[in-house]
């Protein structure tokens, strides 16, 4: 073990960790949007939408993320969309996350009493504002712990995008350890950085949860 190796590599690792963080954040944001849309479509879009949503959820939860990533990475150019690996990676993370998020919201919606949407309907709320003013805000609040958990899972999963050459934490660790022949130290450092980010996220999640409980 040589700690000076870690110190030398640290600036590069931290820079890569920033990429990891924002790729995961963008992935989660995209996942949120997709998840909410899929969830609402499945609940109120009729049988065809429900079935399509069901296939989407089943596919993206059943197929390993690495394969989804390669599929999107190779499929986009085939249909004429030429995007950098970074964009393909964020799309893959978002699509995968969306499948899980839509299920999280589905569970949370079940926890909102049915009488509330009936009451809103009786009061003459249009369908869309029942969703935006009554169901989704409560579902969001209920699902905060699960969503933070989802963010942590996605951050760990983002290590897989190193395969398509995105210079995030895992890829950068690979590059550095290939040049200085010190894989043990470098991967340990990378592991500690991942752990620290996840610890911070978990703490943030607890704070948000406590805040929401007070409100």
């Amino acid at each position: 073990m040589k700690f000076s190796v870690i110190l030398d590599a640290l600036p590069y690792l931290l820079e890569a960790a920033v990429t990891t963080i924002w790729v995961s954040l963008l992935g989660v944001l995209l996942g949120q949007v997709i998840g909410v849309v899929v969830c609402v479509a499945r609940q109120s879009g009729g049988r065809a939408a429900d079935m399509a949503g069901g296939v989407y959820v089943s596919f993206f939860r059943g197929v390993p993320l690495l394969i989804q990533l390669l599929l999107i990475y190779y499929m986009l150019p085939l249909i004429g969309i030429d995007v950098p690996p970074l964009v393909a990676s964020i799309a893959a993370l978002g699509l995968a996350s969306g499948a899980y998020v839509s299920e999280i919201y589905r569970g949370a919606l079940n926890a909102v009493p049915h009488g509330q949407s009936e009451a809103a309907l009786a009061l003459g709320f249009p369908g869309r504002s029942i969703w935006t003013r009554i169901l989704l805000p409560q579902a969001f609040r209920i699902s905060v712990p699960a969503l933070v958990n989802e963010l942590i899972l996605l951050l760990k999963a983002s290590s897989l995008i190193s395969v398509v050459g995105v210079a995030e934490l895992t890829r950068t660790s690979q590059t550095i350890s290939a040049s200085n022949y010190r894989p043990l130290e470098i991967y340990l450092a990378a592991g500690v950085i991942y752990l620290a980010i996840n610890g911070a996220l978990a703490l943030f999640g607890t704070l948000v949860e406590r805040r929401l409980q007070q409100a």
Partner: peptide, 23 residues
Amino acid sequence: IEVIRGTPFLIQLFLLYSGGPSI
């Protein structure tokens, strides 16, 4: 348990497979 659950599986594999020979 926290370390294993808080780090990516890929990093654990690299540590074991590439980092292992160092020890």
